[in-house]
Design a protein around this nucleic acid. Structure first.
Lengths: 242, 242
DNA sequence: CGGGCCGTTGAGCGGGCTCAAGACATGTGG
DNA sequence: CCACATGTCTTGAGCCCGCTCAACGGCCCG
């Protein structure tokens, strides 16, 4: 977390503008919001549960997860974030973080003080509206995630996650839809889909044997996209992609 | 959905003001937002998936649920709403509803046109901020809900839901913490905790046999609050109650 | 070459599901 | 008031998906 950096948010601003068109003044204000860029390492915390969040962050590179632990040590991952996602908007406006936000890989993060966000939304209502919508899009993805965990079996859950990840990576320009690198271990995957790592391993294997995917370590290649979509009960509508 | 009604939002406005203090002008603006009150019956839809939401609503009485169905007919309930909850804020700012919003019981609903909400937030940034926070509080509850489904066993899931409901009913003045009416069938309960209705029945029975609760039809009495809290791995922090 | 991770595989168990029937409520019309 | 229908809750019996425990193999990095 060192030098102030102004151009780093450009890609993020573009994305917000694409989902919620903004005026020039609003765009400039968002682009010029004070922020510091930090290089985080794998497993670093961005926000820890019960802390008072002081920053809201934009992920510039790398991957991050949001999660919470249950009393008996179980962990549930709520979302996986990638470049140009605003993470911790949800946490930062509340006085106390209710979940953890942590790097899945090494990466760069732009830290924006919460007061700056607050000031921004009060001076630029349209911008407040746009950021609000940003958190709502996030919530829509999260609802599908919950449906996935609650009402689908292991095969569908994993297939669904693979489809979602493929599309989200592609929309942010981080990989080809049918061939990408999963930035997490099977244990982390299991915490995302609420299964055992062992069962994740077996399920991935069977998806490969049935010809839906092939894989080398964490590199996923989707061989039968339509088949995988069907297995995963996947309907991209909830991603609200243009 | 008939006569305009101005005082009906008073309790809702009070609640927003309590969680996010607002100035007099903002309070008045929110209180005077155009709305129509409708009497809905049990099972009526407020918003249906894939529709374009035209209203955002405040529940004045009765109970409502948000849910989504999976391809094979499974249903996942995401939240249960009660009096003075703003429902459909999350849906209404997006162009297409990604989930269903439906009455669990008969009740009154105040419908606020989405354009009115938009206008309100642009003219009164502090109000926009407050409503945004309202949706974030909702999201915090939802995360715990997902953790519940993903990482706890049947006993804990149901105990947790009973605890959450007890506290939320009490904070909105709808019942005593240890003695209240569950406004839903066991089948609906099962869609909330991602179990089978049969297993819900058995689990409720065993919670009763072990002395945590007693029940008559859908009337729940919590006998051992601390015990139930422990079984449910319940920590009220996520409710962000003052 | 040794020590961590990580992923794979096997064997056995068990929590929650399925299928099916019966017991209770509630409401409706006669 | 009863007869009946419908929806809800309960109980039983058996099975299977996913979990647990445990061992092994591959890979990376010192």
């Amino acid at each position: 977390m060192n030098k102030p950096h102004h151009s780093s948010l450009a890609a993020f601003v573009d994305r917000v503008h694409a989902t919620t068109p903004l005026g020039a003044a609003d765009l400039k204000a968002l682009l010029d919001v004070p922020s510091t860029v930090g290089e985080l390492r794998k497993s670093d915390f961005i926000v820890r549960e019960d802390e008072t969040p002081r920053f809201c962050c934009v992920l510039l590179s790398g991957f991050a997860i949001r999660y919470k632990a249950s009393g008996d040590g179980g962990r549930q991952i709520f979302s996986i974030h990638m470049a140009n996602d605003a993470v911790g908007l949800g946490n930062s406006l509340l006085s106390k973080a209710d979940h953890n936000l942590r790097m899945l890989s090494a990466g760069e993060v732009a830290f924006i003080p919460v007061e700056a966000i607050r000031e921004l939304t009060l001076k630029h209502p349209a911008l407040g509206h746009a950021l609000w919508r940003e958190t709502l899009l996030d919530a829509a993805i999260f609802r599908e995630w919950t449906l996935n965990i609650g009402r689908r079996d292991a095969r569908s859950r994993i297939a669904h996650l693979l489809c979602e990840f493929a599309l989200r990576l592609e929309t942010t320009g981080l990989g080809k839809q049918v061939n990408y690198e999963l930035p997490m271990t099977q244990e982390e995957l299991s915490d995302a889909v609420a299964l055992t790592p062992i069962h994740v391993s077996r399920t991935l294997k069977s998806l490969a044997e049935e010809g839906y995917i092939s894989r080398k370590i964490r590199s996923i290649r989707i061989i039968d996209w339509h088949g995988l979509v069907k297995v995963g009960d996947f309907d991209a509508g909830y991603l609200h992609r243009g």
